[in-house]
Simulated assay, not measured.
Amino acid sequence: MEAFIELDGVEKVFDVRRRAGLLRREKSQVRAVDGLSFTVARGEMVGYIGPNGAGKSTTIKMLTGILTPSGGRLRVAGIDPARERTRLARRIGVVFGQRTTLWWDLPLKDSYRLMHRMYRIPDQRFRENLERCVELLDLGELLEVPVRQLSLGQRMRGDIAAALLHDPEVLYLDEPTIGLDVISKAKVRDFLRDLNADRGTTVLLTTHDLTDIEQLCRRVMVIDHGRLMYDGALAGLHEVGESERTLIVDLERELPPVVIDLARTVRVEGPRQWLAFPASQSAAPLVSALAARYPVMDLSLREPDIEAVIAKMYAGRSGQ
């Protein structure tokens, strides 16, 4: 498949000054991205994950031209983002979960009108794209509301729509579901899935929510300390990181720890028990076995902490 995003040995080094006395400061360097190489094909939806400070946001900023690499080669659609940022801007969309591209004191619709002019979007194309985003992201009742009065979930949906009004070929999403409620997350995921399937938009998604990755991405890349540690399927990541899901079971009454081949009991509090099992395995057989042998009242599933998964991977490599 055609490579749409290409990184070859990309580095980003920041100069940092720290206080080293009353009047003296010492200069040091922080390597945020360290020899990063990967390609993303046109139309792929890829999860790009790692712990805080791993270099995810720095990578996104280099891909958009906000930051210039310290070394290596980087291309998006054959364009060097740092050299041709304005030209590239018409072909990309960006959503930073903790920052908004909308005008704070203006109604949502006025922010969209400004973007209509900024990107010089043809009128018919703008109307069609706006109507589609408003319908699929449920923004109809919010268009007259000032951005500062929107909830986090509403504002996030508004930001995603804003990033797509000019029909970008690639969409960078940096923590797009952070702080959202369950309903808002579901709407955002459904929209992104349809966008990728219907329009073939290339999507690079950074998130700490593994459910986002599981529901949207076939491929996942893990970065830590600025280096690519894993590139492949999510199931493979769980196997490499030896991660575990947790099934929280509420029984009808207090019982001794559950004994079952498919999982191990890691905690018991009255009638509630916590069972750990490999994250690469389906929960369905475990649930069936529990229901057949124990008086189950309620169940809930807790996904593994991605930072814990990566910490295990990193510790394993350090010990080699």
Results as ranks from 00 to 15, higher is better:
52 N>G: 00
205 L>M: 11
186 A>N: 09
122 P>C: 10
288 S>R: 14
145 V>L: 04
181 D>V: 03
16 V>F: 04
246 T>E: 15
28 S>A: 14
205 L>Y: 07
259 V>Q: 12
310 I>W: 05
135 E>C: 13
268 V>I: 11
177 T>G: 00
294 Y>C: 06
251 L>W: 07
236 G>F: 06
171 L>Y: 12
157 R>Y: 07
267 R>T: 10
272 R>Y: 01
7 L>Y: 05
204 L>C: 07
217 C>L: 05
140 G>W: 11
179 G>K: 01
81 P>Q: 11
269 E>T: 14
27 K>V: 15
203 V>I: 14
26 E>C: 09
44 E>P: 05
261 D>K: 11
230 Y>E: 04
134 V>N: 05
95 V>A: 00
289 A>H: 09
85 R>I: 13
25 R>N: 12
8 D>S: 06
61 K>I: 05
235 A>R: 12
289 A>K: 03
262 L>N: 05
304 P>H: 09
41 A>C: 15
161 A>W: 02
250 D>M: 06
38 F>K: 02
275 L>V: 06
177 T>H: 00
280 S>T: 12
318 S>G: 13
294 Y>N: 05
236 G>Q: 01
153 G>Q: 02
28 S>D: 12
47 G>Q: 05
57 S>K: 00
31 R>A: 11
220 V>N: 00
166 H>K: 06
206 T>Q: 00
72 G>S: 08
242 E>K: 02
67 L>G: 01
177 T>C: 01
214 E>K: 11
5 I>H: 02
173 L>Q: 00
88 L>D: 07
113 R>S: 10
169 E>D: 12
233 A>Y: 05
37 S>K: 03
295 P>F: 09
291 A>S: 11
262 L>D: 04
190 D>K: 15
257 P>K: 10
169 E>A: 13
289 A>E: 09
89 A>D: 03
304 P>W: 02
84 E>V: 12
267 R>W: 09
32 A>I: 10
107 P>Y: 08
26 E>F: 04
166 H>W: 02
147 V>D: 03
235 A>W: 10
131 E>T: 15
292 A>Y: 04
235 A>V: 14
101 T>E: 13
290 L>R: 02
164 L>A: 09
157 R>V: 04
20 A>V: 08
